[in-house]
Write a protein that binds this DNA or RNA. Structure first.
Length: 393
RNA sequence: GGGCAAGUAGCGAAUCGGCAAACGCGACGGACUGUAAAUCCGUUCUCUUCGGAGGUAAUGGGCUCGACACCCAUCUUGCCCA
């Protein structure tokens, strides 16, 4: 059940009730593709960093360890010892990202395992069965994600097929939810809007999938090569055509700025690999913009990544130490960086919800965006100069 | 004191008489949007107007059309023997 608590412009503060708990939106979902947040972040760690929802992946878990195995182990929640809501992506995006050898047909997609190259087939029914085995809180429809550069004619054809696939997904999910030994009888299904950057296709598709009475609606196929302006334009165009009494999910997005812009346009759910992947690579988010902690300027910086940050890394460790850990290839370095970034994202969502409740979202967004631009004009730190001079003798 | 071996980029090295420094590491910088990502890309002797220009094989000499390579001496380092 989706209940809007407060509207502030188009920004919405809502609650989404699931069998695994109530999700406070807007929300960021923490990406755990293979039932693990990369960088050594455990289910237990999620408790301390403001997280609500975990996202995992149908395709990856089907390959390894196998959805049948997860089913036998009692479902994904039990398997990874996580009682939070879990959303599973359908594998549709892997059809896009593993594009080299795929063949897309009406029945589904033929492609090859990225692990050992063996032949695979996945269609709407297969995706639903895998997700049902996993027993996730929310299953995503199996879709095709056309490239941002695809021609209008191709996108139209692709989107029409995605609509037909959605009908098959819905039927199969209803059947699976009714089976006696299903892990989660209340598994929800979100549909996915596609249409690249073509307004007519986006709107037509949004109208058609809105008739399916699904549990939520996602906007897919963005942040795949188009400009930010094009992405925001698509949101301006399509969100008004999605059901207002259901949550809206912008898939795979994005930067903190992307999220703020999308919340302003009425989006409730987000997910992105940025905080975890960038964290592993030393790219850290702060309220004054991002830093690359591997830069030499931080080698003797004894301040935390961000002063006043409540994450486990900032509460205890300096940039100099964390930089050393990353340089030395120590797991702890990545772990602390990922924890910091995830906290930054999830905590920003908390702030967003508070701002909407107060009717101050617009001011909050402006302040946040301006703050994040600050970094570019920051002078090189004093510590860095001291370190340089000391090195020179 | 004697014998043997080795000295090439910050480090490890390739070059085995014919464009020195490939390749790896380290260092420095960058990228990453429903994770084929603990990954990938660029730079890393000097100068440069980014088109290029110049320099270097421990040191000095020699043989040779041509030497990092072969010879001699010196220095340094390692190992062995006294």
């Amino acid at each position: 059940m989706y209940k809007i608590l407060k509207k502030d412009g188009n920004a919405k503060r809502a609650e989404f009730t699931t069998v695994h708990g109530v999700i406070q939106t807007p929300v960021f979902m923490n990406v755990a593709t293979v039932a693990a947040i990369k960088g050594g972040v455990s289910t237990e760690d999620l408790e301390g960093i403001d997280t609500q929802v975990v996202l995992s992946n149908t395709y990856h878990l089907h390959l390894r360890p196998g959805d049948e195995l997860v089913y036998r182990m009692g479902g994904l929640h039990k398997f990874m010892s996580c009682n939070k809501p879990i959303l599973t992506d359908s594998g549709g995006f892997q059809v896009f990202s593993l594009a080299k050898t795929r063949k897309i047909r009406e029945e589904g997609v033929y492609f090859h395992s990225h692990i050992d190259g063996h032949k695979l087939f996945m269609g709407p029914e297969q995706s639903m069965r895998i997700q049902s085995h996993l027993g996730s809180t929310i299953a995503m429809a199996f879709d095709e994600c056309p490239s941002a550069k695809a021609e209008h004619e191709y996108v139209q054809m692709s989107v029409d097929r995605t609509t037909r696939w959605l009908l098959r997904c819905k039927k199969e999910m209803e059947r699976l939810n009714g089976l006696e030994y299903t892990v989660n009888h209340d598994q929800m299904l979100f549909g996915i809007n596609q249409g690249a950057i073509f307004d007519d296709i986006r709107i037509e598709h949004a109208k058609r999938i809105s008739e399916f009475d699904l549990d939520g609606y996602a906007v897919g196929g963005l942040a795949v090569g188009e400009s930010h302006e094009e992405m925001y334009h698509v949101l301006d165009t399509v969100v008004p055509f999605l059901p207002e009494n259901k949550p809206t999910y912008l898939m795979g997005v994005g930067t903190p700025a992307n999220i703020l812009e999308a919340v302003e346009r009425g989006v409730d759910f987000f997910d992105c690999v940025y905080p975890s992947r960038n964290g592993r690579h030393g790219h850290l988010y702060t309220n004054r913009g991002h830093i690359n902690i591997l830069n030499a300027r931080y080698e003797m910086d004894d301040t935390p990544i961000e002063e006043g940050c409540g994450c486990p890394a900032c509460r205890r460790y300096s940039k100099a130490y964390i930089r050393h850990l990353l340089k030395a290839g120590e797991m702890l370095g990545m772990r602390l960086c990922v924890l910091h970034n995830l906290y930054f994202y999830n905590h920003m969502m908390t702030e967003i919800r508070q701002a909407i409740e107060k009717g101050e979202f617009s001011a909050y967004k402006k302040r946040k965006l301006e703050g994040m631009l600050e970094f570019d004009s920051q002078p090189v730190s004093q510590d860095y100069n001291i370190a340089r001079n000391w090195r020179k003798g």
